[in-house]
Write a protein that binds this DNA or RNA. Structure first.
Length: 282
DNA sequence: TGCCAGGTTGTAC
DNA sequence: GTACAACATGGC
């Protein structure tokens, strides 16, 4: 059954930017409607101006998942500190950082290293379809740690994870043994929470920052992927010495600069910059 | 075909 | 601590 939700004035929301920016991997748009899975909900949702029309979940879930409770204008005015981010905000106004499931986000970003977004979506979809609980409409929830932990490396290789299969396998086992991991991470401040996540195999600085930003509301996390690195070097830190691969020191330098420059909501700035990432290379 | 992709790991210095 | 090759796979 369809429900409708009216977005308040002065609190912008842009469904296309939010679901299309690459933070979540289980959404597809068809004929103006987004179809996807969040938690145990198979959701269909579309935006008509200031109205959201949705089915598959109740309004409190939608408000929470899409972070409609946050004062976006306040967040954006706090990071709006230069012409480039200002332009990005103008182009993607209403993009919000979702509140995603910790375990799904953890595994998703282990699957997201050194690859492209269509391939990540394929991996996540295969994992959910094979090991997740079936929902209405034929789609499946992402499995929890207990459901994924018994999988062998070969089974996960079958989900085209490649060399990441042992990492996902070992991480699922760790989470299954320690179901309170997410609660613990949630309670820690950014730096300590990141250190906790870095203990999972297959999780490095970038994946940890994505997980903290998309599943734990640690909004000072500033993930530095190849696009953001290129943009930051080109437009914010032109004096950084040339390097082929990203050294640990360089990552912390870029992310540290971003936190200083954009402030406590640097992660929101990162998503807006990622949303307008240049397609041109080199 | 060859290069690139929401990088991390293991190893050598 | 820093540097760098190896890594599976698919898109373009």
């Amino acid at each position: 059954m369809e429900k409708a939700l009216r977005l308040g004035p002065g609190n912008p929301f842009n469904l296309d930017a939010t679901l299309g920016c690459g933070q979540a991997f289980r959404w597809e748009k068809m004929d103006g409607t987004w179809y996807g899975v969040a938690g145990d909900h198979a959701i269909a949702i579309r935006q008509e101006g200031e109205r959201l029309i949705f089915s598959g979940a109740d309004e409190p879930f939608i408000r929470r998942y899409f972070a409609l409770d946050l004062d976006l204008e306040a967040i954006l005015s706090s990071v709006d500190r230069d012409a480039r981010i200002h332009a990005a905000i103008g182009r993607c106004l209403g993009l919000r950082i979702l509140r995603q499931e910790p375990f799904e986000t953890l595994v998703s970003y282990i699957c997201a290293t050194n690859t492209n977004i269509p391939t990540i979506k394929k991996r996540i979809s295969l994992i959910a379809g094979r090991y997740g609980r079936r929902l209405q409409g034929g789609v499946s929830a992402f499995p929890d740690a207990a459901a994924l932990a018994p999988c062998s490396e070969d089974e996960l290789r079958g989900c085209v994870l490649g060399y990441r299969a042992p990492y996902a396998c070992a991480t699922a086992a760790l989470c299954a043994e320690d179901p309170a991991w997410a609660q613990r991470v949630a309670a820690l401040p950014y730096g300590e929470a990141k250190a906790e996540l870095l203990r999972f195999p297959g999780v490095g600085p970038k994946a940890a920052d994505c997980i903290l930003l998309f599943a734990f509301e640690k909004y000072e996390a500033f993930p530095v992927d190849v696009h953001i690195r290129r943009m930051m070097r080109r437009h914010y830190l032109p004096d950084l010495p040339e390097d082929k691969t990203m050294a640990c020191r360089e990552y912390d330098l870029i992310a540290g600069f971003a936190r200083e420059h954009f402030g406590a909501y640097a992660g929101w700035a990162q998503e807006y910059l990622f949303c307008v990432r240049e397609e041109e290379r080199s």
